[in-house]
Write a protein that binds this DNA or RNA. Structure first.
Length: 149
DNA sequence: GCCAACGTTGGC
DNA sequence: GCCAACGTTGGC
């Protein structure tokens, strides 16, 4: 069982929409490290849901991996923003997972709050701000969960 | 809207 | 295989 963190801009796809729909396909990831992280996911793994590019950015809830990595169909769709002409169906370059809603926190845990906590020093979120799908070590997961509810 | 950080591309 | 140029992300 591993823990993860998924970033999304709430305007594009927020926690409220995930709550309403119950689950979604995590398509459109076009970064190799983020893709590799998704490939490493197991069904049942939990992840923080993070709102980026919004005021304030921060962790807003928890989601769960429902289906392990499979080809992201948007890479083959010329009409999609995520179309990738360098990929082909024989050897799909990009993958996605399905994630389900687990819970929404009563309040956002802002990035600013996270940065203030000494026990979170070294967390990927704080040092590698641009990685959109990332692993979360268990000690960080537990520390954050304690203040979440 | 700016810009720092950093990932990717492409020339050599 | 290096690295400069370029593009994108995302906090502020």
């Amino acid at each position: 069982m591993q823990y993860w963190l998924f970033k999304s801009e709430p305007d594009a796809y927020g926690i409220d929409r995930l709550e309403r729909e119950g689950k979604t396909e995590w398509s459109g990831v076009r970064n190799f490290q983020a893709r590799n992280n998704m490939v490493a996911m197991k069904a049942g793994d939990l992840g923080f849901f993070y709102h980026s590019s919004t005021k304030p950015p921060g962790i807003v809830g928890i989601c769960k991996v429902l289906r392990e990595a499979y080809p992201d169909f948007t890479q083959f769709d010329p009409k999609s923003d995520y179309y990738d002409p360098t990929s082909n169906p024989e050897r799909p370059k990009w993958k996605m997972v399905d994630v389900g809603f687990v819970e929404k926190f009563p309040a956002i845990i802002t990035l600013e709050e996270l940065r203030k906590r000494p026990e979170l020093e070294g967390m990927t979120l704080l040092s590698r701000g641009r990685l959109s799908v990332q692993p979360v070590e268990e000690r960080y997961w537990n520390a954050i969960l304690q203040t979440a509810r």
